[in-house]
Design a protein around this nucleic acid. Structure first.
Length: 705
DNA sequence: TAATTACCTG
DNA sequence: CAGGTAATTA
């Protein structure tokens, strides 16, 4: 099913024989530095696999060609991942579609994905099915476009539907059809593989596309007429309308159920059905409203439910409306693929949307009808899915997707998956705002230059997380929603790269995450600490709690490291009284110490090995202020050397060095997580921090000494 | 599931 | 140093 995936994992196992091994396993949280004796029940689990030593690769980094080959896989693997996660969800949300159909979609998309990957990377590490890697890119693109347009054409050919719908023989014929080499168009003409014919075909398809667009416009008009009629007559007598429309809807259903095979009716029939369906949907919406109203009457006296009621009412309302719009879009889309696709393209490249990381997705929802329509249609015609980066994105959708958006609570905005690309691209861009942010905040997506200020502005008004997220979401929404169906220009720009498609959402979610992290820092905060890096705000400004960490804080943290390698978060809170702590700040501080440790242990191992190679003995190992090791460390944590490093640190350093030395000497460094024990020992050697560190002004005093 | 840590990468 | 992932515990 997923040749790429299986190959990937094979390769991964070959090239990354050492799955990451936790070295801290068994060490209780927040007990570092406290003499708690721990039962390390999990040690066994860690030793399950025993590959090569967990040696510092950064130090001993030879020529790891395996990582090279791994990188080459990414193009395909990412797509595969997408498919893997997207398809199963489809099954849930589209109950009407058979498993075999979905499976075919998977295969189709899978093959397309493989092609994409071979297009995009010169190395096609994972094309298990013998793709000719030398294929010319333009050719590929054209083939893809042809396929897309082929679909569109098929949609128009209502007479041919009946055969396609025949039911049984989906499998093999579909597979053949989607092969890029041959292109049997729906008119029955067989296209020869040579170029001129292709171009001709494309021309013709384009024309047809145009016609479809015009038809679409007409349809829209009709719809609006209908809608106006409905709303003028319907308001007073909902019940009647419901009955009337139920009849009509019933008719439509009948036609749908029995009549799909006998669709020699052509476009006019399609319009009729669309109308009926729309009507039906509207009625359903009305009924929902009525039900709601009844429920309201029933429960209005009940105070307990009052608050829930408002929520529920809102919910239902939005849902009803969205259902209507949704169904219309679904009906319309087949005849109007371009507008959807352009919309898609636009929203993605605008970078304003899709930020909520998959769930609670705001603007990406406008995409969804496309996915469904594609789904429906491929079912209809048992033909192949047009591959487009967008369509793969569309498959990512997992739920009904209204153009009118019902906001879900987005819970936590977390950046979880597929971020390598982003972080790789990201750092090259930075917004002016990013420069203002103190020690860490970099905004990866250039498009955020527009969005972030909006978000921040909203946040400045509302300090509470939820409210703020609401605001940001709405501001995004309002930018996004008006654009659909009007933007045709973008299609001509060609298809976006996969990177683009995924870039924007990630970037946005990052920004939201940041915003959340900063506990919605005020603009005042930003301006107060907005001064460029060289001139960090002096902590003299007491009383004010920073909602961000400054370079000064970093310095202080480094000095603290001389005392405590494993500070608990409560310790951190105690010693950074001028910092307004939130989740993000805390984890940033923790991350700092984690980085400090990393450096520390790397140095220790390095020098321990060095001592080994020099043939020294354990008793010869001493760390003094003159030691090379100390200099390295001091340079890292106390660059200006204005702070007098406590003797206790020298002791700890010496012991750490000895531990490493002994372990290496005993050959323990060949064990899976040999550093674990050392970490455990060192974690108990934290010493209490001097009082000065609790003062907000300590840096002045410390450096003044 | 959140928190914490190690490890990796840029 | 930060971003990300994986592993592990509570």
């Amino acid at each position: 099913m997923y040749p790429c995936l299986t190959q990937m994992s094979d390769i991964e196992e070959l090239s990354q024989p050492q799955k990451r091994r936790r070295v801290d396993s068994g060490v209780k949280r927040s007990t570092y530095g406290q003499n708690t004796t721990l039962a390390h029940a999990t040690a066994a689990a860690v030793n399950g696999v025993a590959p090569t030593g967990n040696v510092l690769r950064s130090l001993l980094k030879g020529s790891s060609q395996n990582t090279e080959s791994l990188k080459k896989e990414n193009g395909a693997s990412i797509i595969s991942e997408l498919l893997k996660t997207a398809i199963p969800n489809k099954e849930n949300t589209m109950p009407g579609h058979s498993a075999s159909h979905t499976q075919n979609l998977v295969e189709i998309a899978q093959e397309e994905a493989i092609q994409m990957s071979t297009d995009n990377t010169a190395n096609n590490g994972c094309n298990g099915n013998g793709m000719t890697g030398g294929g010319n890119d333009v050719e590929m693109l054209q083939a893809k476009r042809a396929r897309v347009e082929n679909i569109i054409t098929n949609m128009r050919q209502s007479p041919s539907r009946s055969e396609m719908l025949g039911g049984g023989q989906l499998g093999s014929s579909r597979r053949k059809q989607r092969q890029p080499q041959q292109q049997v168009n729906s008119m029955g003409g067989i296209l020869e593989p040579n170029r001129p014919r292709k171009d001709q075909e494309r021309e013709r398809l384009k024309q047809q596309l145009h016609e479809m667009q015009q038809q679409m416009e007409r349809l829209q008009k009709k719809y609006f007429e209908l809608y106006e009629q409905e709303s003028s007559t319907g308001d007073d007598s909902d019940v009647e309308v419901i009955h009337a429309a139920q009849k009509e809807g019933g008719k439509a259903n009948q036609q749908e159920a029995e009549g799909q095979e006998s669709q020699e009716l052509g476009p006019s029939h399609f319009f009729e059905r669309a109308r009926a369906l729309v009507r039906e949907q509207e009625i359903a919406a009305r009924q929902a409203h009525l039900n709601r109203a009844q429920a309201m009457l029933a429960s209005i006296s009940n105070n307990n439910h009052r608050s829930n009621f408002g929520e529920a009412l809102k919910d239902k309302l939005t849902k009803a409306v969205t259902d209507v719009v949704d169904s219309v879009v679904r009906e319309y889309f087949p005849s109007q693929p371009t507008s959807q696709i352009t919309t898609l393209h636009h929203t993605h490249s605008s970078g304003v949307n899709g930020g909520l990381n998959g769930q609670g997705d705001i603007s990406r929802q406008s995409v969804h009808p496309a996915a469904q329509a594609i789904h429906n249609f491929s079912d209809f015609h048992s033909t192949h899915i047009p591959y487009h980066p967008i369509s793969s994105e569309a498959f990512d959708q997992t739920e009904a997707l209204p153009l009118v958006v019902s906001r879900k609570k987005e819970g936590r905005l977390r950046v979880k998956q597929g971020n390598h690309r982003v972080s790789a691209n990201a750092n090259t861009h930075s917004s002016s705002l990013a420069n203002c942010l103190p020690t860490s905040v970099a905004i990866p997506n250039p498009s955020l230059q527009q969005t972030l200020p909006i978000v921040s502005a909203a946040f400045s008004l509302h300090h509470h997380d939820e409210q703020a997220k609401d605001y940001s979401a709405r501001s995004l929404e309002s930018q996004d929603v008006p654009t659909p169906l009007t933007d045709h220009q973008i299609l001509s720009n060609g298809s976006p790269s996969m990177g683009d498609v995924h870039h924007a959402p990630e970037g946005l979610s990052l920004s939201l995450l940041k915003a959340e992290c900063g506990d919605l820092q005020d603009l005042t905060d930003l301006s107060a600490y907005g001064s460029p890096k060289g001139s960090p705000p002096h902590p003299g400004s007491q009383g004010i709690q920073n909602s961000s960490l400054t370079p000064t804080h970093l310095k202080k943290a480094k000095l603290m490291f001389f005392y405590t390698r494993y500070p608990s978060s409560s310790t951190l809170k105690q010693h950074f009284p001028d910092v307004k702590f939130n989740r993000c700040i805390t984890s940033q501080l923790i991350k700092w110490f984690s980085n400090f440790r990393e450096f520390y242990y790397i140095q220790m191992e390095k020098f321990a090995r060095q001592a080994m190679s020099e043939g020294l003995e354990t008793k010869d190992l001493h760390v003094t202020r003159d030691s090379e090791l100390f200099h390295a460390l001091n340079l890292h944590y106390n660059k200006s050397n204005e702070f007098k490093v406590p003797d206790s640190f020298l002791v700890v350093a010496e012991q750490t060095l000895s531990e490493f030395f002994n372990a290496i000497k005993a050959g323990k460094d060949l064990e899976a997580s040999w550093k674990k024990n050392i970490y455990k020992i060192i974690s108990k050697l934290d010493s209490p921090l001097p009082e000065i560190f609790q003062s907000p002004d300590c840096m002045k005093e410390l450096l003044g000494e």
